[in-house]
């Protein structure tokens, strides 16, 4: 199934910290063959305050969970896509968000986040619509 989500930094961080709902959601979406993209720059930001064992768990998930995929920055096109987004975030530099949006636009996947409010100031600066799905069990 060529549909999926792009995980943001707060979600990756929560996962690394052992949030059981996020973890089980990832397992659940993987079982449904929903792709979960993790942008490399976003991962770098998300894991900066995680411990070694927590980082191991995140990296192990990327390596061994079938539908979780690292989105690298290894080509000029990938670099350019981030740059195009980053240009709009210059007032409040947010490289983690820039890579999420770049991947989201490129793949046509919405953003998966545990905190919708994290995206309000970002989306307000962008000229494009970026869909965001919040991990919430309240409605």
């Amino acid at each position: 199934m060529n549909i999926g989500y792009v995980l943001d930094d707060v979600t990756i961080n929560e996962f690394g910290r052992g949030n059981t709902v996020v973890t089980q959601l990832i397992a659940n979406l993987d079982a449904r063959a929903i792709r979960m993209s993790i942008p490399a720059v976003t991962l770098a930001v998300a894991q900066h305050d995680l411990g070694d064992a927590q980082i191991d768990a995140v990296h192990g998930t990327i390596k061994f969970v079938e539908h979780v995929r690292l989105e690298a920055v290894s080509t000029l096109d990938e670099t350019q896509r981030i740059s195009e987004v980053y240009a709009y975030l210059a007032d409040q530099p947010d490289p983690a968000a820039a890579h999420v949006v770049a991947v989201s636009r490129h793949l046509g996947f919405p953003v998966l986040t545990t905190n919708r409010k994290r995206w309000d100031p970002v989306l307000a600066q962008l000229p494009w619509t970026v869909e965001v799905f919040e991990i919430s069990d309240t409605d």
Binding site: G18, T20, Q24, A27, N28, D56, V58, K63
Partner: peptide, 23 residues
């Protein structure tokens, strides 16, 4: 080490009925 850490995380979540239902 990475595989074991990931498996431990998923096993812990799978053992939490509340998390399973919510997820």
């Amino acid at each position: 080490r990475e595989r074991n850490a990931a498996e431990a995380l998923f096993a812990k979540a799978a053992a939490d009925p509340d998390a399973v239902a919510k997820a």
